[in-house]
Nucleic acid binder design. Structure first.
Length: 425
RNA sequence: GGAGAGGUGGCUGAGUGGUUGAAAGCGGCUCCCUGCUAAGGAGUUACAGGAGGUAACUUUUGUCGAGGGUUCGAAUCCCUCUCUCUCCGCCA
């Protein structure tokens, strides 16, 4: 959420800073509403103040019991009654205004960082570094082909269980998924992260807090009898974990790692990535998350990104880091580094992690603060996948494929997986 | 799902209509005292919005789970919702 005061006092600046996302905004109406509510608020305060005084006077009469001159009391009561009706009218006006304002302000995305590259879309993202040697060879198989040959997962039957874009992992496939989750959790834990295992269902308030609502309600699955949604990412419960709190600055940064299943409707992506593990309605993910003091969040962003990279390096998967341009940034993010893993079958890099600095955007929505010089200030939140499990499996299958059709398991995973190759039997 | 009890400040816990943003205790912070780790004393200690001031700050309003209502006046009474706890039922 953006600062309401900024919209009231300098809406042109807000329009300008959001324009690099490719949005053409006119905030004049919103600004007017904020000025109006401000005025009404002052009016209301004055009336309330008067009404309070009258109540105290009456209170005094009762208290002193001095042959309560009923005429005076009646007079005062009349005044009070008069004020009350004015007050309740104003309160109603304020409520309406407030609703209009929050409806609008919650739909405004975060300011892109000045450091993020300016650009319209994906094509203008900037590659900032590469790691590893990409596998290039004739007759490379896709991971879904390998998965079929090695009997690692099923989609056909699963469509009958649920629908398309769901998957059942089988045998070594299931085992590899588990191995990856445990390996990632252990690695992050050893690196100073505290593990949380959050619920998969979250309420609307939590989704609003991290920015998925109100704008993207059609991207999550909803249980409409309960005000609960299937969480699209652990970022949601991790943000909500400290909602409404004022966190002791001595405790910062708080670093969490969480495994969670993630559920996404993937509306509007019909026909894209219909095969394999890349785009599913349900997938597993290990998420890393920081609550940082505002002064340190830029540094924290570098750190969280390298913590995610660390996983790819340990798994020996080639990847590159991409600085997301202003037009391609997610709603809540001010700057994002995507990690893209090499997928040889498509001869390209695919997103496997997205590491974002949301600054105070989510903290403001979720009311998460810390103290500085006796004042409460919003802290900064950062999130990154560390990593998406399904896509990691796809990368391991494709990059580890051998001439004989088997797949080599990365060394660090062998203790978790239990053997060094996946072979047909 | 049925029955009951309850949600008060960082925590514990008073407060059932009148100057109560809220006693007391604990914890936290500041200062003082004491030559030892210990102990004692004084003060201070919620959040948000508005107005005024460069500022330290001053002032005003709101907030006792949330939202409505009754009343001149609500933490206290009424209604709705929500969460927690206990018992029963069901259940991994």
């Amino acid at each position: 959420m953006l600062d309401l005061r900024l919209i009231r006092e300098n809406p042109r600046l807000v329009e300008d800073r959001l324009s690099v996302r490719g949005m053409e905004l006119n905030l004049s109406d919103l600004q007017e509403l904020t000025i109006l509510i401000n005025k009404k608020d002052t009016e209301l305060s004055n009336l309330q103040s008067e009404s309070k005084k009258i109540s105290k006077l009456i209170g005094n009469y009762y208290h002193n019991q001095k042959d309560s001159s009923t005429i005076e009391i009646e007079e005062l009561k009349k005044n009070g009654d008069n004020l009350k009706s004015k007050i309740s009218k104003l309160e109603q006006i304020k409520r309406d205004l407030n609703k209009k304002i929050t409806d609008q302000i919650l739909r405004l995305p975060n300011f892109p960082s000045e450091k993020a590259p300016k650009g319209k879309d994906e094509s203008q993202n900037i590659e900032i570094r590469k790691w590893g040697n990409v596998l290039k060879r004739e007759n490379l198989k896709s991971h879904w082909k390998l998965g079929e040959e090695l009997n690692l997962f099923d989609t056909k039957r699963t469509a009958g269980i649920s629908k398309s874009r769901f998957i059942t992992l089988i045998g070594n496939g299931a085992r590899l998924e588990r191995a990856l989750i445990n390996f990632m959790l252990d690695t992050h834990q050893n690196n100073g992260y505290l593990e949380l295992m959050p619920p998969a269902l979250v309420n609307s308030e939590s989704l609003r807090g991290s920015g998925q609502l109100p704008k993207f309600s059609n991207e999550s699955f909803k249980c409409d009898e309960d005000d609960l949604w299937l969480s699209p990412t652990a970022e949601v419960p991790l943000t909500a974990f400290h909602r409404g709190e004022i966190i002791d600055p001595k405790l910062l940064p708080l670093k969490y790692v969480a495994y969670s299943p993630c559920f996404r409707r993937e509306a509007g992506s019909y026909g894209k990535d219909t095969k394999g593990l890349i785009r599913l309605h349900q997938f597993n993910k290990v998420e890393i998350y920081w609550y940082s003091h505002p002064e340190n969040s830029e540094e924290a962003h570098q750190k969280i990104t390298s913590d995610a990279e660390n996983i790819l390096q340990k798994l020996n998967l080639p990847y590159r880091v991409v600085d997301i341009c202003s037009g391609d940034l997610g709603f809540s993010s001010s700057r994002t580094f995507d990690l893209e893993v090499w997928l040889p079958s498509s001869n390209s890099y695919r997103e496997i992690s997205s590491c974002s600095n949301c600054l105070d955007f989510q903290a403001r929505r979720s009311l998460i603060r810390t103290k500085q010089d006796k004042k409460s200030i919003f802290l900064h939140t950062l999130n990154g996948s560390g990593l998406a499990i399904g896509r990691t499996m796809a990368a391991i299958l494709e990059n580890g494929q051998q001439e004989d059709g088997s797949v080599k398991i990365p060394d660090v995973l062998i203790p978790y997986f239990g053997s060094s190759f996946i072979k047909t039997n």
